[in-house]
Design a protein around this nucleic acid. Structure first.
Lengths: 337, 337
DNA sequence: CTGAAAGCGCTAACAT
DNA sequence: ATGTTAGCGCTTTCAG
């Protein structure tokens, strides 16, 4: 039971050298002779010395930690994103500070404040529903580097890495259209976040532009969850003229749709076509396997972290907005009409 | 662009009071008059002051951060666990430092070292495969409070919260036995972690004790993943005398089995019985929905965090080992023979 | 190549 | 009720 922790000072006294020498030696500085360096490292090991990064950070104003704010880690899309970010930051020598806020912007503001107080070198944030620039205020005023990932506060001027959702939706829509579908529903229309707005608005625009026209009855509302997918498909199937295909806000919604269809004794890709968005790992596991839009979440996480590193290195650089190009993953839930 | 951050000292100078007063006022101490307190809070807001927890921690030797080491966050079981822990620690005012190590004990050792250097008040660890007490060494010697969750290093003497896996396996086995199954397979036999060993060994013991006897051909090896579940069921179904029911290491493995069955045109709960372990949210979504053993991962996370708080409050308290009691969740993948 | 000394931002005695 | 002072563990000039 280490009552008191060993400090640099203890090592210095033990070895009869100065703390400056120990500090340099521990970081492998060439300024210190090899013999001394080895003696220091050995003593550190023997005495059970543990480096105190907080103390070092106080001096250097760098913590080697980055803060991550997510609204939800139960959705596999965000877990995969988080995993990619963690991997990339780890390689760069950073530790991750994590906070989640379940789509609650007030809680988000609170979490951002707390994260900032821990002095991270940067922040990667995925805004909660209805979040505005005001919910970032603690981070803004501390001057810490920030990048938004997946979702963005439009016009915030803050770096962003996400998917080109308008294009993704267009690819999905065209695929259904080319398979002959005309009565196309949309499940998971959501106002609250940028991805939800863009995807639904693009769907509306394409329905109009393709000459099909817009039927409000074909859109169901709600955030992207299995529950809303299930409710949505039941609602659309109850229509006097149900859709022959549905576009889903995200994969989680599509899984709910698939579940609903299975319960009703219907098969996706036969009785009705279904297309998701994100391509989380689970998509490939379903039977039938989900046709979806791949948003390259591993790349998204990696690029977000890399952009943050660039921003940390040069806080004055112009704002950057990186859009990944989605691709269609054809599996088994879409067929021609 | 805040070039230099506002400090306590700046606030004190601005208000013409001492830093001690500002420090106390900010923390709402009764020692400071209400008027001063309000003035300080207002000034802090106006000048954009951000509290520096690292600096405070240097003085108080408390960081209000806790470190979390997990091998994997893509497995929903661990995400649900993480989510419960994060929720509980947040309520208690802690921020989470996260590190993952993909079942690699060497990387785990590295991550534990780094986490400790950030001076967390405690650590919640889920050991990687093949991890030994040596991989905890950095944490041990720093004297930080530790609790193991879900998996344990046997004999380590470190607090632990997990499921009673022997009982869980017994409940699952009995359920199959009572449904008339005698030729029962096991998918996902794994030596590398405590949960894997306990579950498989218990299966073997029960096969022997129930008089069925032990047939090595009925066990497939491999860690708990969808891939191994898929491979495993294909292997067992190729036997001249295939099982009528299978016990799976965990739900992820069971999902792989379900996927394999769907590909083969077979239906779980009709052609063969399948039982999982963990009860992750996805279990209820499958069609047919997975019968499984609920390990109460939300409770597990909560109790692990609470045990850590107790350990932090009293480092001398005797080691505690908390086993949650599993329960059977009957859904659709088990039927009588 | 090594040592002395200052100071990062905060808290906690101790004074007043 | 508020101020003074020392110091947490580290890094970084600056001397030698």
């Amino acid at each position: 039971m280490a009552v008191r922790r060993i400090t640099l000072h203890d090592l210095a006294k033990h070895l009869g050298v100065s703390t400056a020498t120990v500090s340099l030696a521990l970081r492998g500085s060439q300024l210190v002779s090899l013999a001394t360096r080895e003696a220091v490292v050995k003593a550190a090991r023997d005495l059970g010395y543990v480096y105190n990064r907080s103390a070092a950070g106080l001096r250097t104003t760098r913590s080697n930690a980055i803060g991550l704010g997510f609204h939800d880690i139960l959705n596999p899309f965000f877990t995969e994103l988080l995993s990619a970010i963690e991997e990339t930051t780890l390689e760069a020598g950073y530790t991750v500070l994590l906070g989640t806020y379940q789509e609650d912007p007030v809680r988000m503001k609170q979490i951002v404040s707390t994260l900032v107080e821990h002095q991270p070198d940067g922040l990667i944030l995925c805004p909660a529903s209805h979040a505005t620039i005001d919910h970032f205020s603690a981070a803004r005023q501390s001057g810490v580097s920030i990048v938004q990932v997946s979702r963005e506060i439009e016009g915030s001027g803050i770096d962003f890495v996400g998917a080109d959702d308008a294009l993704g939706t267009e690819i999905a829509f065209r695929h259904l259209y080319e398979c002959g579908h005309r009565r196309i529903g949309y499940i998971g229309g959501s106002e609250a976040v940028s991805t939800g707005r863009t995807r639904r608005d693009t769907y509306r625009r394409l329905m109009a532009e393709s000459g099909i026209g817009h039927d409000p009855a074909l859109i169901t509302e709600g955030k992207g969850s299995r529950e809303n997918g299930l409710k949505g498909i039941i609602q659309l199937l109850a229509l006097s003229e149900p859709p022959t295909a549905v576009l889903c806000l995200n994969d989680l919604t599509a899984f709910g749709v698939l579940m609903g269809l299975a319960r009703l004794g219907l098969t996706a890709g036969k009785d009705i076509s279904v297309i998701g968005c994100d391509d989380v790992q689970e998509s490939a596991q379903w039977a039938p396997a989900l046709t979806t839009i791949r948003n390259h979440n591993d790349q998204m996480g990696k690029k977000a972290a890399e952009l943050l590193f660039r921003r940390i290195a040069d806080p004055q650089r112009p704002m950057e907005r990186i859009l990944l190009t989605p691709t269609l993953v054809e599996r088994e839930t879409v067929s021609s009409v």
